[in-house]
Design a binder for these strands. Structure first.
Lengths: 243, 243
DNA sequence: CGATCTCTTGAGTTCCCTCAACTTAGGTGG
DNA sequence: CCACCTAAGTTGAGGGAACTCAAGAGATCG
């Protein structure tokens, strides 16, 4: 398979050879970003579509008081909002977590692909709907789940999203997120995240060590999270399973 | 102006006469919904695009434990996800708050409009981006704002969104949301919402009486909310001001 | 091999929740 | 038009989840 982007889109709509070729060409010259480097900042004028080929990134926003809220994680294969360039300015920033390779597809090239390649267009739209579903699931988590449920839920989400695109062996997936990052994503403090992780570890459900996530007891984890994968709309996909 | 939908889209892209006519035709036969009636339920197969012409609704999700999280408010002029019909099933439900008039635009009719009417397509895409921005701002609120900031922020958002489409006189706008609904939207309990509203009332920033929102001190409200309207992307719009 | 970031643990505090009772408003039928 | 009924709003008291502050241990890197 050419790259994570192609792989992901192919999970949403059956791509033909020409589609794959077009996507391959569009992502042929990725740009490298260092950890903590911003791909784009709040207030910037949106330009090309970003496509993560390697590495992780996140969308985030800094509040007046200096606190940070992470809004989404971008994994290999994920693309940033298709039509963003229609807006006058970004309302949030995007930053690399790990060293990352990111393809920049110009507005014109993207438009052309969307017009001439129906399968790609379809896959991109579905992908965007899924991203929105994830946003909504985060709102649900923050609003109505306890901290332990919230952490467990995010781990379920990230496991299922990461499994198809990174090296994974039986419930073991690399998770390059510090506790500070997790805290800012889940609306908690790093101190409390630490205690929750300890608790999840103690319960035997999962373990996070050296930046990798090991799901020891999938059933228990899904149960404590109250996790239902319907919002990821993985019908057509080579669904990763919990173990 | 024909209706709230036309008015809203015209705020995002300059519509021509033919565009307005096409939108008018597409929304000519709205369906009526009663308060608490679901427009569509989680698990249903998505069909036509919903367009709110009159009344308020919200997206929501019920958790296994029976708690509810509201994910977004739909005001007159708002449309539900353009490409939703590509998904196999809804991952959340939508319910009317007030008596509502809702146009149902079939997938085919919508596709045709998007293809032939560039201004409409552009406005719809921008509208969707703004909706996503609102989702993200809710995540920020839930994650990093105190309860009083959260309430104040939602009031700012709803005031600016409602002002263009409903009867409003100098900081006074009708707000048909019970405290239970507000609580489920903000991830709090009705009891606490009540106390926060009392506090906001006492501070002189705003008042909610008989289902209407009165913004008494816009500056103070915006300040306590830490509100910045950039995420609503109202550049081209007949921007409602706070008073 | 010091400097810095990340993680861990403890102690005390606060914000928001739970439970419970009461008041007010709105709507319906007698 | 009032009597009743139910939904919505209000207030108090007590408890608990998560926060703040603080300090030390463990990694990671130039």
């Amino acid at each position: 398979m050419a790259n994570a982007f192609v792989e992901k889109l192919n999970g949403f709509a059956r791509l033909g050879e020409e589609d794959v070729a077009a996507l391959g060409a569009a992502t042929a010259n990725p740009r490298a970003y260092a950890p903590r480097q911003d791909l784009i900042r709040e207030g910037d004028q949106p330009g090309p579509v970003f496509v993560m080929l390697e590495g992780w990134a996140f969308r985030y926003k800094i509040l007046p008081r200096g606190t940070r809220q992470i809004l989404a994680f971008l994994l290999p294969g994920d693309a940033c909002d298709l039509h963003n360039s229609m807006l006058a300015e970004m309302d949030h920033s995007i930053q690399a977590v790990t060293p990352a390779k990111v393809a920049l597809i110009s507005r014109a090239a993207m438009d052309e692909m969307m017009e001439t390649r129906a399968a790609i267009a379809r896959a991109m739209y579905i992908s965007q709907l899924v991203d929105e579903g994830i946003l909504r699931s985060w709102i649900v988590s923050m609003g109505r789940r306890s901290s332990i449920e919230r952490v467990a839920h995010l781990m379920c989400e990230l496991y299922l999203r990461a499994a198809p695109v990174v090296d994974v062996e039986a419930g073991h997936v690399s998770l390059p997120l510090s506790q500070v990052v997790l805290a800012d994503a889940l609306g908690m403090t790093p101190v409390h995240i630490n205690r929750v992780l300890k608790e999840l570890r103690a319960s035997g459900a999962m373990d996070i060590r050296r930046r990798s996530l090991v799901i020891l007891d999938p059933v228990r984890l899904v149960q404590t999270a109250g996790f239902d994968d319907n919002y990821l709309h993985r019908r057509r996909q080579q669904r990763a399973k919990f173990h």
